[in-house]
Design a protein around this nucleic acid. Structure first.
Lengths: 255, 255
DNA sequence: CAGTGGTCTAGACCACATA
DNA sequence: ATGTGGTCTAGACCACTGA
């Protein structure tokens, strides 16, 4: 059963209440406190239990909807989304991706620091080489087994405080209004280096899926440059492809 | 200049006000009434002009933010986002993919035959096990260097004649009115088997990117099941990711 | 029918940008 | 200092679901 009460929310925290609520619910889903298909308490119940308004509860739930963790049914309730047959590769972070696959995400920190970007990073982020970046490097685990090495680089302006990157980098970005709305990913097969093999507990030369992602805001600013190395034997990447969109959005037409 | 006034909103419409507002703003952006980089009127101004509450205005704007049309800057304003180039992995066959990359595509046939589907193939194509399938296996080359092994399986009903599969499988499907409009791809890193290594002229144990694709018609029928093995050192796969659009709305049809 | 999510309001206070 | 977006509230009515 879900453990939700007012004591878990902090009015004075810089993290908005709706995100604190989303974090709380996300954590409990990952703990298995509530399983696939189960209904969440109603918005009014949550509102009452946590002592915040229903509008704020809804905003928190909407965050989890976009992550694909919950689904709503008008007139019926809010449910933990089935993890099978997920739409496709969406703009989700590692945590949401793992939960969708029915695995428990985790992290082991390797590095968390601030510094100047390498030329490659400056290029990828279209960033001036003298502006600082935050670096986050973690071994990401699924059900406590190492699955990937993830190295994220974020221009420091988007994440003033290093401290509070909890489970989810994207949640932290969202709190600063810098959640990317679009991303470009590049995938490549490769072999594990000795250092990678050690971190991932696999033999050197094992198959590695390298994923490089750049995330952008709506105005085109790059906010994220992440390079990951996934174990080839444990991970596959699913994506949907479509015909060029019949979207009305013109490619530059005049007028 | 933006034309926004209360007369354009309909209280009694089944479309919620925040979506009507979003539609109105989207339409004017596409008409060019307001250009890239220009600021939108402030939320309070819009609220006043249209006669709806600021919360509702914000919800409408958030819709356009997620579509990537607008960007917000705290303390400053809301701006029309620059148009972004249309990149990304689309539903293209090998030939089109290579031409996009500026390489010359080619093929060496390995197998071209008709038979019954394996259980795995029948499952992937949602096909009755007693219906025949065509098989096409080729080594695909780029600038005359082997790049990938491609094994396609197509239900025979979609390709009556085997003969005329020239350079492009998709062209042949299109000629029979069975070109897929949607696909699901699964990518995985792996190591080259001895047989694969020989076909691709690489050492056994080299990095291989395996791509499995299922292609569907608009009505959901599966027409294609293709498994490919790409050289990891020569090929990378690029894809675009976006927020899922919450656009449940109908395009104007019913009613 | 009662209970759920979906929409909407009017007002408040805060944090940030710009001048 | 002013104006902007960011968050939050308490309450209301509607539309839908399901017993």
């Amino acid at each position: 059963m879900l453990q939700i009460d007012r004591a878990q929310l902090d009015d004075r925290s810089p993290t908005p209440l709706y995100l604190q609520l989303a974090d709380m619910i996300r954590a409990q889903i990952m703990d298995g406190a509530i399983g696939t298909g189960d209904a969440l308490p109603s918005e009014r119940e949550l509102s009452e239990a946590v002592g915040i308004s229903r509008v704020t509860v809804r905003k928190g739930i909407e965050t989890l909807l976009r992550e694909g963790l919950l689904s709503r049914k008008h007139g019926s309730g809010t449910y933990i989304a089935p993890r099978i047959e997920q739409p496709a590769a969406l703009l989700a972070g590692f945590s949401a991706d793992m939960i969708n696959r029915g695995q428990k995400p985790g992290s082991i920190w390797i590095d968390r620091s601030m510094g100047l970007p390498t030329p490659e990073e400056a290029l990828a982020l279209a960033l001036s080489p003298d502006l600082h970046v935050q670096r986050f490097a973690r071994v990401r685990t699924a059900n406590d087994e190492p699955l990937a090495i993830e190295r994220a680089v974020i221009p420091a302006q988007f994440l003033p405080g290093v401290a509070e990157i909890g489970a989810s980098l994207y949640a932290a970005l969202e709190a600063h209004g810098a959640r990317p709305v679009r991303g470009l990913q590049r995938l490549q097969a490769s072999l594990a280096t000795a250092a990678e093999a050690k971190l991932l507990s696999i033999p050197p030369g094992s198959a590695i899926l390298r994923i490089e992602r750049r995330g952008f805001l709506a105005n085109g600013t790059a906010v994220e440059f992440t390079r990951s190395a996934y174990r080839g034997d444990r991970y596959d990447f699913v994506t949907e492809v479509r015909e060029p969109r019949s979207d009305k959005r013109v490619t530059e037409a005049g007028k």
